[in-house]
Write a protein that binds this DNA or RNA. Structure first.
Length: 270
DNA sequence: ATGGTAGGCGACCTA
């Protein structure tokens, strides 16, 4: 079977529900992972998703900030929520999806890693300290260490652009939170600890620029193309050779009242 | 070198 999966930091699912509908109608992914839904679970626009054919929905939302969700055409056989750094703040949800009778379910983790504030010094900035601790906990988290034959996927807004060409200017962003050496190294340590494959970088050479986010703080986001690759799709070794397509929907940054992040989509032949 | 925008919520917080 063919399975298409998207991840998108939507920056308020209620405000942008029409953009989500537009995306789902055009791309029809089987599963969409959202971050920054900014929506308590009892206010999530369930009916709209169900009408669009996404009847299976797993939520971890809270009032005002953060929030993750998975909406799916395929049913879940399990869902789970983990907390990190002893803070209950809606940054993770995982679901298991049955794809066929004979194989064990696919396990999918959806993350919203702390952005980390402005000052890249854990001593003076508690938000950056939180981000680094969060990444350390992800590295040590046993469920994020799939064994060789397990079919696991990790997606989300990881808020780190780890490689030189994951940002518009490596040199100018070395002291900017999202691309400092300490957090890049910690994110790559999470990747290595779980033996994950970074799908974007498995398919696009390291010397090519790749972005999924462009700041709102520019009159015109296209000027100078000052983007960063903050949104990621990782797969376990068992799925690496199943990936048949990978796309970043850059156009979505030009839609009316856009999110500052664009959808990232992977297709697999299972 | 600096400040720029956006969203939620109800006075500033987060990104």
């Amino acid at each position: 079977m063919r399975l298409t999966l998207s991840t998108w930091n939507i920056n308020s699912v209620r405000l942008r529900i029409d953009l989500v509908a537009k995306f789902l109608k055009a791309q029809r992914p089987d599963i969409l992972c959202l971050q920054e839904t900014k929506c308590p679970d009892d206010a999530f626009p369930l009916k709209r998703f169900k009408r669009l054919g996404y009847e299976h929905i797993a939520l971890n939302g809270q009032k005002g900030y953060h929030g993750v969700a998975v909406v799916s055409k395929l049913p879940f056989v399990a869902t789970d929520i983990r907390t990190f750094c002893d803070i209950i703040d809606s940054r993770h949800i995982s679901v298991s999806v049955k794809t066929d009778e004979n194989a064990p379910p696919l396990v999918l983790h959806n993350f919203y890693v702390p952005a980390g504030g402005d000052i890249p010094d854990p001593e003076v900035n508690p938000k950056f300290r939180h981000k680094l601790s969060f990444l350390d906990e992800m590295k040590a988290c046993e469920p994020l260490h799939p064994s060789g034959d397990q079919r696991h996927i990790l997606v989300g807004d990881l808020n780190v652009a780890p490689h030189e060409h994951d940002v518009w200017s490596h040199k100018q962003l070395l002291k900017v939170v999202s691309h400092t050496p300490v957090e890049c190294e910690k994110l790559l340590a999470v990747l290595r600890a779980g033996n994950w494959v970074d799908v974007a970088r498995d398919r696009i050479p390291l010397d090519q620029k790749v972005y999924t986010w462009w700041s709102y703080r520019a009159a015109d986001w296209t000027v100078g193309d000052r983007g960063r690759r903050l949104d990621h799709i990782w797969v376990s070794e068992a799925l690496k050779n199943r990936v048949i397509d990978f796309k970043i929907l850059r156009d979505a940054r030009s839609w009316e009242r856009p999110s500052d992040h664009v959808p990232v989509t992977m297709t697999m032949e299972l």
